[in-house]
Protein backbone atom coordinates (compact mmCIF):
# COMPACT_ATOMS: atom_id res chain seq x y z
CA UNK A 1 0.00 0.00 0.00
CA UNK A 2 2.54 2.54 -1.20
CA UNK A 3 0.01 5.33 -1.65
CA UNK A 4 -1.90 4.44 1.50
CA UNK A 5 -4.96 3.43 -0.50
CA UNK A 6 -6.64 0.14 0.30
CA UNK A 7 -8.58 -1.28 -2.65
CA UNK A 8 -11.04 -2.85 -0.21
CA UNK A 9 -11.51 0.42 1.69
CA UNK A 10 -14.97 1.95 1.66
CA UNK A 11 -15.55 4.66 -0.95
CA UNK A 12 -16.05 7.18 1.79
CA UNK A 13 -15.28 7.08 5.49
CA UNK A 14 -16.33 9.92 7.75
CA UNK A 15 -15.14 10.07 11.33
CA UNK A 16 -16.41 12.48 13.96
CA UNK A 17 -16.95 15.11 11.27
CA UNK A 18 -17.98 18.56 12.50
CA UNK A 19 -18.51 21.93 10.88
CA UNK A 20 -19.11 25.01 13.00
CA UNK A 21 -19.97 28.34 11.44
CA UNK A 22 -19.13 31.59 13.17
CA UNK A 23 -22.30 33.63 12.87
CA UNK A 24 -21.23 36.25 15.42
CA UNK A 25 -22.17 39.81 14.82
CA UNK A 26 -19.36 42.25 13.97
CA UNK A 27 -16.76 42.82 16.69
CA UNK A 28 -17.81 46.40 17.43
CA UNK A 29 -21.42 45.31 17.83
CA UNK A 30 -20.42 42.51 20.21
CA UNK A 31 -18.34 44.84 22.33
CA UNK A 32 -21.12 47.40 22.58
CA UNK A 33 -23.90 45.00 23.44
CA UNK A 34 -21.65 42.69 25.48
CA UNK A 35 -22.69 39.54 23.71
CA UNK A 36 -20.33 36.66 23.02
CA UNK A 37 -19.49 34.78 19.89
CA UNK A 38 -22.29 32.82 18.28
CA UNK A 39 -21.21 29.47 16.88
CA UNK A 40 -23.65 27.55 14.69
CA UNK A 41 -22.95 23.83 15.01
CA UNK A 42 -24.26 22.77 11.61
CA UNK A 43 -22.62 19.36 11.84
CA UNK A 44 -21.40 18.18 15.21
CA UNK A 45 -19.68 14.82 15.23
CA UNK A 46 -20.98 12.57 12.45
CA UNK A 47 -19.41 9.22 11.55
CA UNK A 48 -20.35 6.80 8.78
CA UNK A 49 -18.86 4.81 5.95
CA UNK A 50 -20.18 4.07 2.48
CA UNK A 51 -19.00 0.78 0.90
CA UNK A 52 -18.32 0.88 -2.84
CA UNK A 53 -21.35 0.51 -5.07
CA UNK A 54 -23.92 1.26 -2.37
CA UNK A 55 -26.13 4.18 -1.49
CA UNK A 56 -26.24 5.87 1.87
CA UNK A 57 -29.01 8.39 2.38
CA UNK A 58 -29.08 11.12 4.96
CA UNK A 59 -32.53 12.34 5.95
CA UNK A 60 -33.75 14.94 8.37
CA UNK A 61 -35.63 18.19 8.69
CA UNK A 62 -34.44 21.47 7.17
CA UNK A 63 -31.40 22.77 9.00
CA UNK A 64 -30.29 19.42 10.45
CA UNK A 65 -26.94 19.70 8.66
CA UNK A 66 -27.39 17.11 5.93
CA UNK A 67 -26.46 19.48 3.09
CA UNK A 68 -23.44 20.65 5.09
CA UNK A 69 -22.27 17.03 5.30
CA UNK A 70 -22.65 16.78 1.51
CA UNK A 71 -20.51 19.86 0.98
CA UNK A 72 -17.93 18.71 3.51
CA UNK A 73 -17.32 15.37 1.84
CA UNK A 74 -16.56 16.95 -1.56
CA UNK A 75 -14.32 19.58 0.01
CA UNK A 76 -16.48 22.66 -0.57
CA UNK A 77 -16.21 23.32 3.18
CA UNK A 78 -13.23 22.70 5.42
CA UNK A 79 -14.22 20.61 8.45
CA UNK A 80 -13.84 22.12 11.92
CA UNK A 81 -13.10 18.71 13.37
CA UNK A 82 -12.91 15.09 12.34
CA UNK A 83 -11.73 13.59 9.11
CA UNK A 84 -12.95 12.31 5.77
CA UNK A 85 -11.23 9.53 3.86
CA UNK A 86 -12.01 9.14 0.18
CA UNK A 87 -11.19 5.67 -1.19
CA UNK A 88 -8.55 5.29 1.48
CA UNK A 89 -6.99 8.72 0.92
CA UNK A 90 -7.27 11.67 3.22
CA UNK A 91 -9.81 14.00 1.59
CA UNK A 92 -7.45 16.96 1.61
CA UNK A 93 -4.86 14.97 -0.34
CA UNK A 94 -7.49 13.48 -2.63
CA UNK A 95 -8.75 16.97 -3.48
CA UNK A 96 -5.25 18.11 -4.37
CA UNK A 97 -4.78 15.20 -6.77
CA UNK A 98 -6.65 15.55 -10.07
CA UNK A 99 -6.72 11.78 -10.56
CA UNK A 100 -8.60 11.38 -7.25
CA UNK A 101 -10.69 14.53 -7.61
CA UNK A 102 -12.01 13.24 -10.92
CA UNK A 103 -13.56 10.28 -9.09
CA UNK A 104 -15.98 12.42 -7.04
CA UNK A 105 -18.76 14.58 -8.41
CA UNK A 106 -21.83 16.33 -7.08
CA UNK A 107 -25.42 16.79 -8.26
CA UNK A 108 -27.23 19.79 -6.88
CA UNK A 109 -30.72 20.57 -5.71
CA UNK A 110 -31.76 23.53 -7.85
CA UNK A 111 -31.68 22.63 -11.54
CA UNK A 112 -32.18 26.31 -12.34
CA UNK A 113 -29.06 27.50 -10.48
CA UNK A 114 -26.76 24.58 -11.15
CA UNK A 115 -26.21 25.28 -14.85
CA UNK A 116 -24.45 28.44 -15.99
CA UNK A 117 -27.15 30.29 -17.97
CA UNK A 118 -24.59 31.80 -20.38
CA UNK A 119 -23.08 28.49 -21.46
CA UNK A 120 -24.27 26.08 -24.10
CA UNK A 121 -25.19 22.65 -22.74
CA UNK A 122 -22.33 20.99 -24.62
CA UNK A 123 -19.84 23.33 -22.94
CA UNK A 124 -21.42 22.72 -19.53
CA UNK A 125 -21.11 18.97 -19.93
CA UNK A 126 -17.63 19.23 -21.44
CA UNK A 127 -16.28 21.37 -18.59
CA UNK A 128 -15.06 18.46 -16.39
CA UNK A 129 -13.73 16.70 -19.50
CA UNK A 130 -11.63 19.77 -20.32
CA UNK A 131 -10.64 20.41 -16.70
CA UNK A 132 -9.21 16.91 -16.37
CA UNK A 133 -8.02 16.62 -19.98
CA UNK A 134 -9.91 13.37 -20.43
CA UNK A 135 -10.17 13.31 -24.21
CA UNK A 136 -7.91 14.62 -26.94
CA UNK A 137 -9.28 16.93 -29.59
CA UNK A 138 -12.51 18.68 -30.28
CA UNK A 139 -14.13 15.90 -32.27
CA UNK A 140 -13.56 13.34 -29.51
CA UNK A 141 -14.96 15.77 -26.96
CA UNK A 142 -18.10 16.36 -29.04
CA UNK A 143 -18.53 12.63 -29.39
CA UNK A 144 -18.19 12.07 -25.63
CA UNK A 145 -20.73 14.83 -24.90
CA UNK A 146 -23.19 13.33 -27.39
CA UNK A 147 -22.73 9.94 -25.76
CA UNK A 148 -23.37 11.39 -22.30
CA UNK A 149 -26.48 13.24 -23.47
CA UNK A 150 -27.85 10.01 -24.95
CA UNK A 151 -26.95 8.19 -21.76
CA UNK A 152 -29.15 10.45 -19.63
CA UNK A 153 -32.04 10.31 -22.10
CA UNK A 154 -31.50 13.52 -24.04
CA UNK A 155 -30.74 14.06 -27.71
CA UNK A 156 -27.17 14.84 -28.83
CA UNK A 157 -28.68 17.84 -30.65
CA UNK A 158 -29.65 19.33 -27.27
CA UNK A 159 -25.98 20.19 -26.73
CA UNK A 160 -26.34 23.25 -28.93
CA UNK A 161 -29.05 24.76 -26.72
CA UNK A 162 -28.85 26.93 -23.63
CA UNK A 163 -30.12 25.76 -20.21
CA UNK A 164 -33.19 28.04 -20.25
CA UNK A 165 -34.60 26.06 -23.15
CA UNK A 166 -35.08 23.01 -20.91
CA UNK A 167 -37.55 21.95 -18.20
CA UNK A 168 -36.50 21.24 -14.62
CA UNK A 169 -36.27 17.48 -15.18
CA UNK A 170 -34.26 17.90 -18.36
CA UNK A 171 -31.90 20.29 -16.62
CA UNK A 172 -31.36 17.75 -13.86
CA UNK A 173 -30.47 15.22 -16.58
CA UNK A 174 -27.93 17.72 -17.90
CA UNK A 175 -26.53 18.08 -14.36
CA UNK A 176 -26.19 14.31 -14.13
CA UNK A 177 -24.50 14.19 -17.54
CA UNK A 178 -22.03 16.84 -16.37
CA UNK A 179 -21.34 14.90 -13.19
CA UNK A 180 -20.82 11.67 -15.18
CA UNK A 181 -18.53 13.31 -17.74
CA UNK A 182 -15.42 12.86 -15.59
CA UNK A 183 -16.29 9.14 -15.15
CA UNK A 184 -16.64 9.44 -11.37
CA UNK A 185 -17.14 6.56 -8.98
CA UNK A 186 -18.68 8.55 -6.13
CA UNK A 187 -21.60 10.94 -6.53
CA UNK A 188 -22.90 13.24 -3.84
CA UNK A 189 -26.54 14.04 -4.59
CA UNK A 190 -27.81 17.00 -2.59
CA UNK A 191 -31.61 16.74 -2.79
CA UNK A 192 -31.48 16.07 -6.55
CA UNK A 193 -35.23 15.59 -6.90
CA UNK A 194 -36.77 17.96 -4.38
CA UNK A 195 -37.27 20.75 -6.93
CA UNK A 196 -39.02 18.46 -9.41
CA UNK A 197 -42.57 17.25 -10.07
CA UNK A 198 -43.42 13.85 -8.60
CA UNK A 199 -43.61 12.16 -12.02
CA UNK A 200 -40.29 13.66 -13.06
CA UNK A 201 -38.78 12.70 -9.69
CA UNK A 202 -39.45 9.06 -10.47
CA UNK A 203 -37.77 9.35 -13.89
CA UNK A 204 -34.66 10.94 -12.41
CA UNK A 205 -34.50 8.36 -9.59
CA UNK A 206 -34.84 5.50 -12.07
CA UNK A 207 -32.11 7.03 -14.20
CA UNK A 208 -29.85 7.31 -11.17
CA UNK A 209 -30.50 3.71 -10.14
CA UNK A 210 -29.88 2.48 -13.68
CA UNK A 211 -26.60 4.39 -13.78
CA UNK A 212 -25.59 2.91 -10.44
CA UNK A 213 -26.19 -0.63 -11.68
CA UNK A 214 -24.45 0.03 -14.95
CA UNK A 215 -21.42 1.99 -13.75
CA UNK A 216 -21.11 0.68 -10.19
CA UNK A 217 -21.50 4.15 -8.70
CA UNK A 218 -21.48 4.92 -5.00
CA UNK A 219 -24.00 7.50 -3.86
CA UNK A 220 -24.29 9.77 -0.86
CA UNK A 221 -27.90 10.79 -1.19
CA UNK A 222 -29.27 13.76 0.73
CA UNK A 223 -33.03 14.13 0.98
CA UNK A 224 -35.90 15.07 3.23
CA UNK A 225 -38.31 12.95 1.23
CA UNK A 226 -38.70 9.56 2.92
CA UNK A 227 -40.47 7.93 -0.02
CA UNK A 228 -37.57 8.84 -2.31
CA UNK A 229 -35.04 7.64 0.25
CA UNK A 230 -36.75 4.28 0.62
CA UNK A 231 -36.62 3.80 -3.14
CA UNK A 232 -32.91 4.43 -3.62
CA UNK A 233 -31.07 3.59 -0.42
CA UNK A 234 -29.12 0.63 0.85
CA UNK A 235 -28.67 2.29 4.22
CA UNK A 236 -30.24 5.36 5.76
CA UNK A 237 -28.90 7.78 8.33
CA UNK A 238 -31.32 10.01 10.21
CA UNK A 239 -29.88 13.35 11.24
CA UNK A 240 -31.13 15.68 13.93
CA UNK A 241 -29.46 18.98 14.77
CA UNK A 242 -26.08 18.14 13.30
CA UNK A 243 -25.83 14.56 14.61
CA UNK A 244 -26.79 11.10 13.44
CA UNK A 245 -29.52 9.65 15.67
CA UNK A 246 -30.03 6.39 13.81
CA UNK A 247 -28.22 4.57 11.05
CA UNK A 248 -29.78 1.38 9.68
CA UNK A 249 -30.32 -0.69 6.54
CA UNK A 250 -33.13 0.94 4.59
CA UNK A 251 -35.76 -1.78 5.02
CA UNK A 252 -35.03 -2.13 8.73
CA UNK A 253 -35.33 1.60 9.24
CA UNK A 254 -38.67 1.77 7.48
CA UNK A 255 -40.22 -1.38 8.98
CA UNK A 256 -38.76 -1.21 12.49
CA UNK A 257 -37.58 2.29 13.32
CA UNK A 258 -36.00 2.53 16.77
CA UNK A 259 -35.19 6.15 17.57
CA UNK A 260 -38.27 8.17 18.70
CA UNK A 261 -37.35 10.85 16.14
CA UNK A 262 -37.25 8.33 13.28
CA UNK A 263 -40.63 6.99 14.38
CA UNK A 264 -42.05 10.48 14.49
CA UNK A 265 -40.74 11.20 10.99
CA UNK A 266 -42.26 8.00 9.60
CA UNK A 267 -45.52 8.67 11.41
CA UNK A 268 -45.72 12.04 9.69
CA UNK A 269 -45.57 10.52 6.20
CA UNK A 270 -49.00 10.77 4.54
CA UNK A 271 -50.14 7.28 3.68
CA UNK A 272 -53.26 6.56 1.66
CA UNK A 273 -53.51 2.94 2.79
CA UNK A 274 -53.55 3.66 6.50
CA UNK A 275 -56.26 6.23 6.94
CA UNK A 276 -57.59 6.51 10.46
CA UNK A 277 -54.29 5.47 11.96
CA UNK A 278 -53.42 7.27 15.15
CA UNK A 279 -50.71 9.79 14.38
CA UNK A 280 -48.41 11.32 16.92
CA UNK A 281 -47.10 14.53 15.35
CA UNK A 282 -43.66 15.75 16.39
CA UNK A 283 -44.48 18.61 18.72
CA UNK A 284 -42.52 21.79 18.96
CA UNK A 285 -39.84 23.30 16.75
CA UNK A 286 -36.31 22.24 15.90
CA UNK A 287 -34.13 23.90 18.57
CA UNK A 288 -31.55 26.43 17.42
CA UNK A 289 -28.23 24.83 16.44
CA UNK A 290 -26.54 27.89 17.97
CA UNK A 291 -27.80 26.94 21.44
CA UNK A 292 -28.65 23.21 21.29
CA UNK A 293 -30.40 21.72 24.35
CA UNK A 294 -28.17 19.87 26.82
CA UNK A 295 -28.19 16.08 26.88
CA UNK A 296 -30.01 14.52 23.96
CA UNK A 297 -30.82 17.31 21.47
CA UNK A 298 -34.22 15.71 20.81
CA UNK A 299 -35.38 15.59 24.44
CA UNK A 300 -37.62 18.72 24.37
CA UNK A 301 -39.75 17.05 21.70
CA UNK A 302 -39.40 13.41 22.77
CA UNK A 303 -42.31 11.52 24.39
CA UNK A 304 -39.85 9.15 26.12
CA UNK A 305 -37.53 11.77 27.60
CA UNK A 306 -36.54 11.42 31.25
CA UNK A 307 -33.97 13.02 33.54
CA UNK A 308 -31.04 11.15 31.97
CA UNK A 309 -32.02 12.33 28.48
CA UNK A 310 -31.97 15.93 29.70
CA UNK A 311 -28.48 15.60 31.18
CA UNK A 312 -26.47 13.07 29.22
CA UNK A 313 -25.83 13.02 25.50
CA UNK A 314 -26.54 9.51 24.12
CA UNK A 315 -23.91 7.73 22.03
CA UNK A 316 -24.59 5.72 18.87
CA UNK A 317 -24.98 2.13 20.12
CA UNK A 318 -25.89 -1.02 18.20
CA UNK A 319 -29.54 -2.02 18.49
CA UNK A 320 -30.36 -4.98 16.27
CA UNK A 321 -29.23 -4.22 12.71
CA UNK A 322 -29.20 -0.52 13.43
CA UNK A 323 -27.10 1.86 15.46
CA UNK A 324 -29.20 4.23 17.54
CA UNK A 325 -28.34 7.17 19.78
CA UNK A 326 -31.12 7.00 22.39
CA UNK A 327 -31.15 6.27 26.11
CA UNK A 328 -34.69 4.91 25.93
CA UNK A 329 -33.70 2.35 23.28
CA UNK A 330 -30.59 1.40 25.26
CA UNK A 331 -32.63 0.93 28.44
CA UNK A 332 -35.38 -0.95 26.60
CA UNK A 333 -38.11 1.48 27.62
CA UNK A 334 -38.93 2.44 24.03
CA UNK A 335 -41.75 -0.10 23.76
CA UNK A 336 -40.23 -1.80 20.72
CA UNK A 337 -43.11 -4.29 20.75
CA UNK A 338 -45.45 -1.46 19.83
CA UNK A 339 -44.35 -1.87 16.24
CA UNK A 340 -44.91 -5.66 16.07
CA UNK A 341 -47.61 -6.76 13.66
CA UNK A 342 -51.00 -6.86 15.41
CA UNK A 343 -51.44 -10.59 14.58
CA UNK A 344 -48.48 -11.60 16.74
CA UNK A 345 -50.25 -10.38 19.85
CA UNK A 346 -53.64 -11.86 19.01
CA UNK A 347 -53.29 -15.30 20.70
CA UNK A 348 -52.51 -13.63 24.01
CA UNK A 349 -55.55 -11.44 23.82
CA UNK A 350 -57.87 -14.33 23.06
Amino acid sequence: MRDGADPAAPMLEVEDLAKHFDVSRPLLHRLLSGEGRRILRAVDGVSFAIPKGTTLSLVGESGCGKSTVARLVVGLYTPTRGRVRFAGHDLHEARADAAQRRRMQMIFQDPYASLNPRWRVRDIIAEPIRAFGLVKGRAAERERVAELLTHVGLSPLDGEKYPHEFSGGQRQRISIARALSSSPEFLVCDEPTSALDVSVQAQILNLMKALQRELGLTYLFISHNLAVVRQVSDRVGVMYLGRLVELAPAETLFTAPRHPYTRALLDAVPDLGMTGRQRVPVGGEVPSPIAPPPGCAFHPRCPLADARCRAERPALLPAGEAVVACHAVEEGRDGAARREPAGALAPDAA
Partner: peptide
Protein backbone atom coordinates in the same frame (compact mmCIF):
# COMPACT_ATOMS: atom_id res chain seq x y z
CA UNK B 1 -22.90 30.91 -4.12
CA UNK B 2 -24.96 29.61 -7.02
CA UNK B 3 -24.67 25.90 -7.61
CA UNK B 4 -23.03 26.18 -11.02
CA UNK B 5 -20.08 27.88 -9.32
CA UNK B 6 -20.02 25.15 -6.65
CA UNK B 7 -20.04 22.54 -9.43
CA UNK B 8 -16.97 24.18 -10.94
CA UNK B 9 -15.30 24.21 -7.51
CA UNK B 10 -16.03 20.50 -7.01
CA UNK B 11 -14.13 19.82 -10.26
CA UNK B 12 -11.30 21.81 -8.72
CA UNK B 13 -11.08 24.76 -11.12
CA UNK B 14 -8.99 27.70 -9.92
CA UNK B 15 -10.44 30.93 -8.61
CA UNK B 16 -9.31 33.05 -11.54
CA UNK B 17 -10.78 30.62 -14.05
CA UNK B 18 -14.11 30.45 -12.23
CA UNK B 19 -14.26 34.24 -11.92
CA UNK B 20 -13.52 34.85 -15.59
CA UNK B 21 -15.45 32.03 -17.24
CA UNK B 22 -18.40 31.56 -14.89
Amino acid sequence: NKEYVLAARVIGLGRARIMLTH
